[in-house]
């Protein structure tokens, strides 16, 4: 597995973490945690946009 493939796996896990953390903050319910949750959802979205751009840029690099 190349660094490209491992990076994709890592970013996918990070998306799951940031999204999951956002959900977790909603269950906590306090004001400051709402801010963290919002930040987390934005991070999740930013990572998805990043991964699409990354895939385009590294189109020619092998997954092995």
């Amino acid at each position: 597995m190349s660094l490209k493939a491992f990076h994709l796996a890592f970013i996918s896990l990070s998306v799951v973490l940031t999204f999951g953390f956002g959900i977790w903050t909603l269950t906590e319910g306090s004001g400051l945690y709402t801010f963290y949750g919002l930040f987390s959802f934005i991070s999740s979205l930013a990572l998805i946009i990043y991964v699409v751009k990354f895939l385009k840029k590294f189109r020619d690099v092998s997954y092995l």
Partner: peptide, 13 residues
């Protein structure tokens, strides 16, 4: 080195 660094990051995740 990047593969190792990613592993360290994944452990934290």
């Amino acid at each position: 080195a990047g593969l190792y660094w990613h592993f360290v990051d994944i452990v934290w995740i």
